[in-house]
Amino acid sequence: MTYKAILNGKTLKGETTTEAVDAATAEKVFKQYANDNGVDGEWTYDDATKTFTVTE
């Protein structure tokens, strides 16, 4: 399944996708990606669109 992350960081804005077996696995991948890029904020998840959003 393909999951998407939308990054609304102070220094990084954009989107990325990952293939994962479930939302929990995708969330770990996206949170690591955000952390590696200095983005730390509030996370939300929309199951209907399989989209995570982080906003700083």
Rank of each mutant, 00 (worst) to 15 (best):
L7E: 02
W43R: 01
A20H: 03
Q32T: 08
T49P: 00
T51W: 01
N37L: 15
T17W: 14
T51G: 00
A23T: 08
N35Y: 15
T51C: 04
V39A: 04
V21T: 11
T44K: 08
Y33W: 15
A20P: 01
T44M: 09
T53V: 08
K28Y: 09
K13G: 05
E56L: 07
A20Q: 06
A24G: 08
D40G: 09
L12I: 13
F52R: 00
K31L: 07
F52A: 01
N35P: 00
T53Q: 06
A5M: 15
D46S: 05
D40H: 14
V29F: 15
T49F: 05
T51F: 02
T11A: 10
A48E: 13
D47G: 08
G41D: 02
T44I: 09
N8W: 12
D22K: 01
A23M: 12
F52N: 00
V29N: 06
F30Q: 00
F52M: 01
G38W: 08
T2G: 05
D22L: 04
N8L: 13
F30R: 00
V21N: 11
A23N: 06
A26H: 01
I6N: 05
A48Q: 10
Y45E: 02
Y45S: 02
I6R: 05
A20D: 03
T11D: 10
V29T: 09
T17H: 10
G38I: 05
D40T: 13
A5D: 03
T11Q: 10
T49Y: 05
E56T: 07
A34E: 00
D22Q: 03
K50W: 06
V29W: 14
K31H: 08
T49C: 04
V39I: 14
N37T: 06
F52Q: 00
V39L: 13
K13C: 14
D40M: 13
A5H: 03
K4R: 13
F52S: 00
T49A: 06
A23Y: 13
E19G: 05
V29D: 04
D22N: 09
G38L: 06
E42G: 05
E19C: 14
A5R: 00
T18Y: 11
D47C: 08
F30G: 00
D47F: 09
E19N: 13
A24E: 12
T16D: 03
G41T: 02
Y33H: 04
T53D: 01
T18C: 15
E56H: 06
K13H: 11
G41W: 06
E19R: 13
V21L: 12
V54W: 12
T49I: 06
F30Y: 01
L12P: 03
I6Y: 07
K13L: 07
T49M: 06
G9K: 04
A5K: 01
K10R: 13
A23V: 11
M1E: 12
K4F: 12
V29Y: 15
N37D: 03
L12S: 07
K28Q: 11
I6G: 02
D40P: 04
T44F: 10
K13M: 09
A5L: 15
Q32W: 05
A34H: 02
F52K: 00
F52T: 00
A24Y: 10
L12W: 15
M1H: 14
D40Q: 14
V54T: 02
N8H: 09
E19I: 15
E15Q: 11
K28S: 09
V39K: 02
K31T: 05
A34R: 02
G38R: 06
E56R: 03
T51K: 02
I6E: 04
G14F: 15
N8F: 11
K10F: 12
K50P: 00
L7N: 01
Y33T: 03
E42N: 10
T18D: 02
W43P: 01
Q32E: 08
Y45T: 00
E15L: 11
G14W: 15
D36R: 10
A23R: 12
G38P: 00
V54M: 14
K4A: 05
N8V: 12
F30A: 00
Y33R: 04
E15A: 09
T17V: 09
T17C: 12
E42P: 05
D40I: 14
F52Y: 05
A5P: 03
E15D: 05
K10Y: 11
Y33K: 03
D36C: 09
Y45R: 00
T18N: 03
M1G: 12
V39Y: 09
D46H: 06
D22W: 02
E27Y: 15
K31S: 04
E27F: 15
A34F: 10
N8M: 12
N37A: 12
M1R: 12
N35V: 14
K4N: 05
A24D: 10
K10W: 11
A24K: 11
T44Q: 08
Y45L: 02
E56W: 13
E42S: 10
K10C: 14
Y33E: 02
E19Q: 14
T11N: 13
D22F: 04
E15N: 06
T55N: 10
E42C: 11
D46K: 03
V39F: 14
T2Q: 10
E56K: 03
D47P: 14
Y3K: 03
I6L: 06
K10D: 06
T16L: 15
E19F: 15
T11L: 12
A23H: 08
F52L: 00
W43E: 00
D40E: 13
T44A: 09
E42M: 12
D40R: 13
K13D: 04
G9D: 02
T25V: 08
F30I: 02
A26E: 01
D36I: 11
T44R: 08
A26T: 01
K50Y: 09
T51H: 01
Y33C: 10
T44V: 11
E15F: 14
V29L: 10
W43I: 04
D47K: 09
Y45I: 01
K31A: 05
M1L: 12
K50H: 11
D36H: 07
T2C: 14
D36F: 10
D46F: 04
T18F: 13
E27H: 13
M1S: 13
L12N: 07
K31I: 07
F30T: 00
G38M: 06
T25H: 12
